[in-house]
Measured scan of single mutants.
Amino acid sequence: NQASVVANQLIPINTALTLVMMRSEVVTPVGIPADDIPRLVSMQVNRAVPLGTTLMPDMVKGYP
Results as ranks from 00 to 15, higher is better:
8 N>R: 14
32 I>V: 08
15 T>P: 00
53 T>M: 11
44 Q>E: 10
44 Q>M: 12
29 P>G: 03
46 N>L: 13
42 S>I: 03
45 V>E: 01
34 A>C: 04
10 L>K: 08
54 T>A: 06
25 E>A: 15
63 Y>T: 06
31 G>Y: 02
1 N>H: 14
25 E>I: 07
47 R>P: 02
43 M>F: 10
14 N>H: 14
18 T>Y: 03
25 E>R: 10
19 L>A: 14
6 V>N: 00
54 T>M: 03
15 T>N: 04
38 P>M: 09
11 I>G: 00
1 N>K: 14
30 V>Q: 12
40 L>M: 07
57 P>L: 05
15 T>M: 09
26 V>N: 11
20 V>N: 13
24 S>F: 06
39 R>C: 05
48 A>L: 11
42 S>E: 13
62 G>Q: 07
28 T>G: 06
10 L>R: 11
26 V>P: 06
22 M>S: 01
2 Q>D: 06
37 I>V: 08
22 M>K: 00
9 Q>M: 12
14 N>I: 03
19 L>R: 13
61 K>F: 10
20 V>H: 08
38 P>S: 11
29 P>F: 04
52 G>S: 06
56 M>C: 04
15 T>R: 06
44 Q>K: 14
40 L>V: 04
44 Q>D: 04
24 S>A: 15
62 G>D: 14
15 T>S: 10
36 D>S: 08
9 Q>D: 13
19 L>C: 05
40 L>E: 01
34 A>K: 12
60 V>N: 01
35 D>C: 05
50 P>C: 05
50 P>L: 12
10 L>N: 13
38 P>Q: 12
32 I>R: 01
47 R>V: 14
45 V>K: 00
64 P>C: 05
42 S>N: 15
25 E>K: 10
55 L>H: 01
28 T>E: 13
19 L>D: 07
36 D>Q: 14
15 T>D: 03
23 R>T: 09
13 I>E: 15
54 T>H: 03
10 L>E: 15
30 V>T: 12
30 V>L: 15
5 V>C: 04
48 A>F: 13
26 V>F: 06
8 N>M: 09
47 R>L: 12
6 V>P: 01
31 G>Q: 02
61 K>A: 13
23 R>N: 08
47 R>C: 05
29 P>V: 10
61 K>T: 15
18 T>V: 07
40 L>W: 02
31 G>V: 01
57 P>S: 10
11 I>F: 02
13 I>S: 12
23 R>I: 07
64 P>T: 15
18 T>I: 07
51 L>M: 14
12 P>S: 07
40 L>C: 03
27 V>G: 03
19 L>S: 09
35 D>F: 13
32 I>W: 03
